[in-house]
Design a protein around this nucleic acid. Structure first.
Lengths: 335, 335
DNA sequence: CCGGGTCGGTAACGCGTGTAACCTGGAAGT
DNA sequence: ACTTCCAGGTTACACGCGTTACCGACCCGG
């Protein structure tokens, strides 16, 4: 006794074989109904009964170790960093991949650099890695993955790197689109909100760069403005708004925009008369604001299309032909 | 040639051994710096150099197959179903678990029932399964997991089942708290929003039940009201609000509450004069509404504490001693 | 009575690891 | 000079699985 607590002794296919009175091979044939080998109906029934009785579940790791390939798709992403927009998209993609036989898994981890992150992912030997924050994936990191046998390295990114299959996801264009709109509305001193939350700067920086590139072609100027997703930070920012001298702002998000909108109102700054506000993601909340928020909608490629492309990439090494993310301006009353 | 595309041939510890001119065992000793065995500094250096040169990364599956234990923690949860409140909590928990040597992974999957879900999870042979929607985990499903060798089956749930270690997460109390508040404000005809989005009813149902239990002790009545998270659904609901005869509503969420709030205003229903509205989660948006939303804040147990408890459970089978979720009413002007 | 074919089953190997057990040569102790 | 010991290495096995090759029994035609 006393042993009951230490090792519950997971049930293996050998246990099933023993109970059914057959060899382990037969068990394998039955449970995978291998077409290459015939097995009598009576023993098949015995095996199935034994497996059911013992509650046998195959060991995925052992299986893919033997097979030399796994059906795991790893998506490095922290839950809190993805907005509502992408989160539903992720869910749909995961559903599509499931139908293709893949098991999609999310992993958020804080890593000092891209290579050590890739190392951690590579340990799991996934069939593919789908990086949503693809710009943080270096060619060197991708090399680690491919050397570990990862078949599909797919990244949503603005710039393409060696050994990485890229789906266009250029947040530069998002910032540029917002800036162009604001300039066309006669604004000249544009602020761009840079969120302080961890993980968000991967998107925020290119957006800022996009806005700046527009400014460099016009008479407008662009100023990065730091802000955290708290009432205090927003209020503090609104308080010193006059001294910033901005007549427009591109908030990172509709949620940041909404927060800032309220803070500005509380501070007596009128929107859109004194300052135009543009959000992003076209979340439901944006239309509910007072005034309703102008925002940038991000049209994502169809999940089914991405899933198919990934499958082709893993199976046959075919590079994906998928349209990228398309930013679309949705104008409302806040600008 | 032509072979380059088919099998990139993942690098193994045998490759490292070959390049370093030593046996595979020595490589293992060096890379894990096994204390039980000594190895000279020169060969150690050679091995490390070879591993680095080849970009070797150990195969987690093979490792845990051999070790008989894995460091994987599986959290079944769909990204879109978790609100902002829990998502940051999940991130923190994942961080704590990482420090304890675990790799936390999220998996969303649509399964016909709890047992088939458990079967899918069991295939991965995780060290532990942490179910946030713990009420959907049956004793039979937990049995599948333990039989597959999963050491820690941890569930945030209201009712405890056989073989499942439970951290109290009783959404009944959430509904009850909201209902008690509304009754104390003189309301009698309470509506409870039931969101139509998939995966959300696991929380919505017990909250409804909690509200109903309060009603059964008083003269108040409770009516479930279906609503989807779209403007159309909210508008349609607000349109037929008068005929529902409700003077209070507990929305599933602050986001649902905000959506409903706007729809009600557009339909000419005054809040809180004609109807009280109570949200949930105490999200930032709730305080920004007009009028500011009364809401129920959910105090979660400290992630570090949960991580430690899980570690103890996996390592020594010690049942977790962790305070559960505590609902707290945050009163504002909407009720 | 014998050769060939089919059906139904088993033995054995390898996937990539970690580790217990086993060698070997040289230094130290007797 | 013979044993003892240890540092520093290797060989061999097991983890759970899928699959290839093999084997016995039976049936059938010649």
């Amino acid at each position: 006794m006393g042993k009951e607590r230490t090792a519950p002794a997971a049930v293996t296919s050998a246990d099933v074989a023993r109970l059914a009175g057959v060899s382990r091979a037969t068990v394998s044939f039955v449970l995978n109904n291998t077409q290459a080998h015939r097995v009598s109906d009576t023993t098949r029934a015995r095996v199935l009964a034994a497996a059911d009785q013992l509650g046998y579940v195959p060991h995925a790791a052992a299986r893919s170790l033997r097979a030399g390939r796994s059906n795991l798709v790893l998506m490095p992403a922290s839950v809190s960093a993805v907005g509502r927009l992408v989160s539903t998209w992720i869910d749909d993609l995961q559903g599509e991949l499931e139908q293709l036989g893949y098991i999609t898994v999310l992993h958020a981890g804080r890593f000092p650099n891209a290579v050590s992150a890739a190392r951690a992912w590579a340990e799991l030997r996934p069939a593919a890695v789908v990086a949503l924050e693809g710009d943080s994936l270096t060619g060197q990191a991708a090399d680690v993955l491919t050397k570990a046998g990862v078949r599909g390295v797919l990244a949503f990114a603005s710039r393409r790197a060696e050994g990485i299959h890229t789906i266009d996801f250029d947040h530069t264009r998002v910032g540029a689109l917002a800036a162009e709109h604001l300039v066309s509305r006669g604004r000249r001193n544009l602020g761009v909100i840079m969120p302080q939350e961890r993980g968000l700067d991967t998107f925020a920086r290119p957006r800022l760069a996009g806005a700046q590139s527009v400014a460099s072609r016009t008479t407008a100027s662009v100023t990065p403005v730091e802000m955290a997703y708290t009432r205090g930070s927003a209020a503090e920012l609104a308080e010193r708004w006059p001294e910033l001298g901005l007549d427009a702002v591109f908030a990172y998000n509709d949620e940041y925009a909404a927060l800032l909108l309220h803070a500005l109102r509380d501070a007596g700054v009128r929107v859109p008369e004194e300052v135009s506000v543009v959000g992003c993601d076209d979340l439901l909340v944006s239309a509910l604001q007072q005034p309703p928020l102008t925002t940038v909608r991000l049209d994502m490629p169809a999940p089914a299309q991405v899933a198919d492309a990934l499958h082709e990439l893993v199976e046959r090494g075919v590079p994906p032909e998928v349209p990228g993310m398309e930013p679309v301006l949705v104008q409302r009353q806040s600008s």
